[in-house]
Amino acid sequence: MAQAASKPTVDITARPADLDGLSYADYATNVLRDRLIILDIPPGTPINDELIGKELGIGRTPVREAIKRLESEHLVSVYPRRGTFASVVDITDLAEIAEIRAQLEPLAASRAARFASADQRAKMRELATSLESADMATTDYAGLMRYDLGVHRSIYAANGNKHLQETLITYDNLATRIWCMVIDRLPNVGSHIDEHVGLLLGIADGDAEKASDLAREHVLSFERLVRSVI
């Protein structure tokens, strides 16, 4: 299946001088996770911890710790005596992932509408304004993915339940990998991103019921959009 065109490239040659308080393992996890999600590391690609450590300017131990974390997130697969590989993206997983997200995304949006801090609500309004002013028709795939991931991460962080946040990040990552597999064939992706505006404003306004309904419809529309090209 064709992979997404014009995928953003994460700079894994950056030295760990800009860790911003992260441990080496956290740093390696974040870099590798981003590359795996956007398919900058294509599915099935071997992952060599020694080479990655050299590229990141860190040792193999934190890279191995990162790989363990990413295996638990289903982004890498480890096979005894064979090695570690970027997990295959299975389009048939779409229905199961969408089923889970259709239950949990509305819950997170509803909780965020009730429990978000004043600062989080202000940032959601800023993000909504940014989305409204952006020209989605001319935004490249990298930009669209940044918007989408940014919106979902902000909602998850504001929901007040760290376990729900971690679970949703995992499933949103898997959904994003599926999206990246077909994004170059999807019609009108920009309108899907535009759906975030009402969701963000609903949360910022504290309207839990509206936020829940919009989150559910957003997940279902994503599934419909992907199914339109598979």
Rank of each mutant, 00 (worst) to 15 (best):
N173Q: 02
M145D: 09
R125W: 05
V151E: 08
S191L: 09
M145Q: 10
T129Y: 05
T170W: 00
N161C: 07
N173A: 03
A137R: 13
A142D: 07
A158Q: 03
T129D: 07
I155R: 01
Q165M: 09
L131K: 08
L186P: 02
E166H: 13
I178K: 04
V197I: 15
G160P: 04
D135P: 04
D194R: 10
I183K: 03
V197E: 06
G190I: 03
I178H: 01
Y171L: 07
Y147F: 14
N159F: 01
N173G: 01
R185A: 07
L131W: 07
E195N: 15
E132A: 12
E126R: 08
K162N: 13
S154C: 08
R177T: 05
P187T: 10
K162L: 03
A157W: 10
Y171M: 06
T170L: 04
Y141K: 11
L127Y: 10
E195V: 03
Y141E: 11
D140Y: 05
G198P: 06
T138Y: 08
W179Y: 05
Y141T: 14
R177Y: 00
L164G: 13
H152S: 06
V151Q: 08
T138S: 15
R146E: 07
R185T: 11
H192I: 10
E166T: 12
L186W: 01
R153L: 08
D172P: 07
G160R: 01
T167N: 12
D194I: 11
H196M: 10
R125C: 13
G160Y: 00
V189W: 03
R153C: 03
L131S: 12
Q165L: 06
S130N: 12
I178N: 01
H163F: 01
M145S: 07
S130H: 13
D135G: 06
L174H: 00
E132C: 10
R153A: 08
A175Y: 01
H152I: 02
R153E: 13
N159S: 15
R153G: 05
D148N: 11
T167W: 01
T176S: 06
T176V: 05
R146K: 05
N173C: 02
R185V: 04
W179A: 11
H196I: 09
I178S: 00
H152E: 08
Y141H: 10
G143Q: 05
A134R: 10
S133F: 13
V182F: 00
S130Y: 14
R146I: 02
R153T: 14
T138V: 14
S154G: 09
L149A: 13
N159T: 14
K162M: 12
A158M: 02
H196D: 06
D135T: 11
A134P: 02
H192D: 11
S191I: 11
V189L: 07
R125M: 15
S154V: 03
M181Y: 01
T170V: 10
L131N: 11
L164T: 14
I155V: 08
A142P: 08
R177K: 09
V189N: 04
L131D: 11
L174Q: 02
L168F: 05
D184R: 11
L168V: 05
E126W: 04
D140L: 14
R185I: 06
G198Y: 05
N159P: 11
P187S: 10
E132I: 15
A128D: 01
L174R: 02
W179I: 15
H192V: 10
N159G: 13
V151F: 10
N161H: 13
L186Q: 04
E126A: 09
L127E: 14
A128N: 00
C180N: 03
